[in-house]
Design a protein around this nucleic acid. Structure first.
Length: 139
DNA sequence: GCCAACGTTGGC
DNA sequence: GCCAACGTTGGC
């Protein structure tokens, strides 16, 4: 199983919106690197939900419930989307500042590739971030 | 609102 | 195929 991080501006589509919908369509991606990551997702993979711009924090964990298919919002038919469902909300969100300050998270693509909206997360980093989100600070 | 990073487009 | 110009994203 692979792990991911997906960004959304919460005033456009937030964690609460996903919870309300129960299953959300992760569409609107218009970047080839991000698209390739969407295509690589398998059903059951887990991903962090990151609020960009407003909040700048990881707010919860979701899972892939439908693998990549053509994005209906892309009239040119080049891009894809997946369906995701909420798994759990973090007890406390993990902020970008916190990620940046953590000695073991310096290689996260979140820091290195600012603008990438769909990215893979290594399992070690995944576990660290989950611990932080669940209020467990042991390292 | 500004700016840095970086992806995309188009001219050559 | 290169590169300048431009547009977009996202943090501050």
């Amino acid at each position: 199983m692979n792990h991911w991080l997906l960004k959304s501006e919460p005033d456009v589509y937030s964690w609460d919106d996903l919870v309300r919908e129960k299953v959300g369509r992760w569409d609107g991606v218009r970047n080839y690197t991000a698209r390739n990551n969407l295509i690589a997702m398998k059903k059951g993979d887990l991903g962090f939900f990151y609020h960009s711009n407003i909040g700048k924090e990881i707010v919860g964990i979701m899972k892939v419930v439908k693998e990549a298919y053509p994005d209906p919002t892309d009239e040119k038919g080049k891009f894809v989307c997946v369906n995701v469902a909420p798994v759990e909300k973090f007890i406390r969100p993990v902020t970008l500042a916190e990620v940046r300050a953590h000695p073991k998270l310096h290689n996260l693509l979140l820091l290195k590739q600012n603008r990438l909206s769909v990215m893979p997360i290594g399992v070690d980093e995944w576990n660290i971030l989950c611990d932080l989100g669940n209020g467990n600070f042991t390292r």
